[in-house]
Write a protein that binds this DNA or RNA. Structure first.
Lengths: 183, 183
DNA sequence: TGGTACATGTAACATGTTACATGATTAG
DNA sequence: CTAATCATGTAACATGTTACATGTACCA
């Protein structure tokens, strides 16, 4: 129980547990929905962190319910750990964009290949942007007080602006990268 | 020598080696400069990958020079491995933005703390954006044929658009997140 | 002659990914 | 009855991070 400082993944699980006990499964779904666009977490990690945090006394497992559901609740120690995590300055953001790697090494990539990769990703981003726009429209249409919080809205706004920037970038790409039809 | 498919980090080292032999140290510096903004690599990893790729026959170590410099050259097998890596569709991009985590859990974060974190990151991004803008200006001023390649320019353009989007996002943040002066 | 930048490497550990094993419950 | 979904968990491995140990060459 050496109370090592939390990592961001563990901290976000504690964050979600502030609104009541949740099972590992619930946490996976919640994380995917609420922070998945800028902080991905796998199921495997969730169970691992939950076990470790139970050890450390930051969460407590409840009785198993139907289908073996096992709810975890945040403890006082967990709240404290979260509170002190939150005081630490957040680390720098990390972007890993494999497509850009391919672009940078474009001189060593067959033209058609590069163009195909670019086109594929452009389509993915177009879909994602459309999804965010739908989310925003839904949020705007929600009855007052029932839409997402300002915090969730800010996260969505980030996603929206990011995806728009990416689309603009795709659209500004020169033919060498974007247009080539030759092999 | 089971010719496992390359990971993106190893592949980018091979990418850099296309322009001639380099030492681990050189590769760290090159990677930092050319792809560091969207693909970070540590020194430790470079030496590890280099050792593994030498084992696999993708690179060959040359004679040690002054200061124990040990240049690695890409081999034919290495070129092939790179070529087939490049044909694989690039994976999805990964963004890990700890500040956004703090924002999403804003309801459980003291107002002043949140505002301070936001302000700190805004400053960081402002600096980074200014740096990119200077890079672009320098590139534009370079004598014809001596500026960065279209590929490098595309990568810079991404960085520029990304940072602008982030700044716009900061500027659009509501007072609850941005403005709070109270604890 | 002393500090800084260069240069390689290892060890230990943290985090993330993939794949699998197992079983319960629900809906059609 | 059976397929899909819910649900937990483990194992093995890949990748990334941090810290340290060691020594060289250059410059003031």
């Amino acid at each position: 129980m050496p109370a090592r400082p939390l990592n961001a993944t563990a901290a976000s699980l504690l964050g979600f547990l502030h609104s009541g006990p949740k099972t590992g499964w619930d946490l996976v779904a919640t994380a995917e929905r609420d922070i998945g666009d800028f902080w991905s977490i796998t199921q495997s990690q969730v169970y691992r962190e939950l076990t470790a945090m139970a050890q450390a006394g930051f969460v407590e497992a409840g009785e198993r319910g139907p289908r073996d559901r096992r709810p975890y609740a945040i403890t006082e120690a967990g709240r404290k750990a979260f509170a002190s995590w939150v005081e630490q300055p957040p680390g720098p953001e990390l972007i890993r964009f494999p497509l850009l790697l391919t672009v940078v090494f474009g001189a060593h990539v067959p033209r058609g290949t590069l163009a195909a990769h670019v086109a594929r990703h452009r389509a993915i981003h177009a879909t994602r942007l459309a999804g965010y726009e739908a989310d925003r429209a839904a949020a705007a249409a929600a009855p007052p007080g029932h839409g997402p919080s300002a915090y969730a809205a800010a996260a969505l706004d980030f996603g929206l602006r990011y995806e728009r920037a990416v689309m603009d970038w795709f659209d500004a790409l020169p033919d060498e990268i974007n247009g080539g039809r030759a092999g």
